[in-house]
Write a protein that binds this DNA or RNA. Structure first.
Lengths: 144, 144
DNA sequence: CTCATCTCAGGCTGACTGAGATCT
DNA sequence: CAGATCTCAGTCGGCCTGAGATGA
């Protein structure tokens, strides 16, 4: 998409700019994760597991911002690839306790580096200082 | 989505932050336009027409960042509501010349104001100065 | 019984692809 | 002829809803 050729009404509209850049962000991250046969949602799940430890699918859905229904399917795949394990929680047998496997943990480390590279490509036009500024602004807009 | 409860790997990833804020942006703009029975894509078309004048559907697709196939359908609706007119271009009969109607032009003026209000809600946490900074950073990232 | 959790089936939308008809 | 334009049918991925089964 050629942003410069777009009408001023769009080129100056924050919501439109966000949509455009977010679309590019999707592409670069999907590309990186695709190499490992992973979906962006699956990285979110692995990230939540790496940082918060073993937990239920409901907790994972909440922390990764995914829908509980979809978590089922993503976890199915990850379990089959032995990146995590799914076992009934003995303390509450309604729950599945999801735990990252050693392979899963190693993969997260790899993905972190490769995703950092993807951000570099996405924000190639911005110097480091501006990238930090952008992240700060986005965070404040989301949290405030 | 609770951004603060998300894992650090996501909370600090530009692509993820963009995705989150862009999702909210979609909501607020879709809500505003929905009141007028319009889709976000249709506003993009009206904006391109308001700024660049009568033009072909292909030109509209290019400038609004939409797919040529989808433009057909959106224009169908807008034409039926008399917000624009669709007529064969006498100079090149492959083309449809799309022109904004007086009603269409009036509506664009209204939408501009209402969308500005939507941006205010989206970025309520940021003071005016930071909003300009955000727009500048997004533009530079997209253009560079 | 009520509520939480997981699972599955299906719907909806936006973005795209491919092919055909018309015209330059 | 090649190439541009418009149209339509259909696909695909991401996001969501609702209902059922199990268990606290």
């Amino acid at each position: 998409v050629d942003v410069e050729g777009a009408p001023n009404r769009l080129r100056t509209l924050p919501s439109w700019l966000l949509g455009q850049l977010s679309a590019r962000a999707r592409e670069v991250t999907a590309q990186v994760l695709g190499v490992h046969g992973l979906h962006r949602s699956q990285y979110a799940l692995l990230a939540a597991l790496a940082e918060f430890g073993p937990q239920s699918q409901a907790a994972l859905a909440e922390r990764s911002g995914l829908d509980r229904s979809d978590v089922v399917t993503w976890i199915d795949e990850l379990a089959e690839r032995r990146l995590l394990s799914r076992q009934r929680d003995p303390a509450d047998r309604r729950r599945n306790l999801i735990s990252l496997s050693p392979d899963g943990r190693r993969l997260v480390g790899r993905l972190d580096k490769e995703l950092a590279g993807a951000q570099d490509r996405l924000l190639a036009a911005l110097p480091e200082r501006d990238r930090r500024q952008l992240v700060a602004l986005l965070s404040r807009a989301l949290i405030g």
